[in-house]
């Protein structure tokens, strides 16, 4: 599904290399996790894949179902089925959460040549999905993420994911700022979306989230590269011994 080959990325404004050749393939129906210390390039990878400004791809490729995504605009990537759950969801005063989601859903449908979803169908769907994440009507009516707690923002990300039904979901430190209850809700939301045709890339610092969202494959990233790949046990090893051992072992 998502295939990344030799991806090299620099910061646009400074002469600084962040990703130094990332190889990674996420198959449909699988959950891959990326762990790694601060500054290893995990978040950069998620931003580059979703098309954020400020990065320069100097080498390698990234394709989604065989389509090169690196040349696409962010909205084209979204319409192609890529979704990034932000580490820091953006507050947008003045834009209602509902308006935002409906605009997004219909923009994607339009880009794919589908009919727009009617207001009634949309409302029904959003209420159903929001209930699962224990989100109140008030949260749906308020401006996007404004006045939301950390946990509410993350639940709102998962709600958007549920509404947009992407093929490939990237979760960037979705566990940061979550208490135990919120983590459970968010994980339930993610697990409900696990299905054969959908791939997940879960970026996290901690094993904790992976207790709830069980990965099929775990990658360790360090200094802009994937340095080790293994099964779920790799996350436990990190939890126990930190990254130092793995780094030493690879070096």
């Amino acid at each position: 599904m998502l295939e990344i080959k030799g991806l090299k990325v620099d910061l646009e404004d400074e002469d600084k290399s962040i990703l130094k050749g990332v190889d990674l393939t996420v198959e449909a129906g699988k959950v891959h996790a990326i762990m790694g210390p601060n500054g290893s390039g995990k978040s950069t990878l998620s931003y580059v894949l979703s098309g954020r400004d400020g990065y320069e791809v100097t080498g390698g490729t990234a394709t989604l179902d065989g389509e090169d995504i690196l040349d696409m605009e962010p909205e084209e990537r979204a319409a192609a089925g890529l979704f990034l759950a932000f580490q820091y969801p953006v507050e947008i005063p003045g834009v209602g959460n509902m308006t935002f989601m409906r605009t997004a859903v219909n923009a994607q449908r339009k880009a794919r040549g589908q009919d727009e979803m009617s207001a009634t169908d949309f409302l029904k769907l959003v209420r159903e999905k929001a209930a699962m994440l224990e989100m109140s009507n008030d949260m749906l009516k308020r401006p996007v993420n404004v006045g939301f707690s950390g946990g509410e923002k993350k639940r709102n990300e998962i709600l958007q994911m549920a509404m947009l039904e992407p093929k490939m979901c990237i979760l960037d430190e979705t566990d940061s700022g979550l208490d135990v209850d919120a983590m459970k809700l968010v994980s339930q939301g993610v697990n409900a979306l696990r299905e054969e045709g959908r791939g997940f890339l879960v970026i996290t610092h901690y094993q904790r989230l992976l207790d709830h969202i069980k990965p099929d494959v775990v990658h360790i990233m360090s200094d802009g590269r994937i340095i080790k790949t293994g099964g779920p046990e790799l996350a436990l090893e990190v939890e126990k011994n930190g990254y130092a051992d793995i780094k030493a072992e690879v070096a």
Binding site: S50, G51, R52, D53, E73, P74, E75, R77, A78, A79, L84, F86, P89, V90, I92, F100, M101, T103, A104, A107, Q108, A111, V144, Q160, L164
Partner: peptide
């Protein structure tokens, strides 16, 4: 905000 909206598929 612009990037957030675009990342959700809303054209620029």
């Amino acid at each position: 905000g612009l990037f957030y909206l675009r990342a959700r598929g809303v054209p620029k």
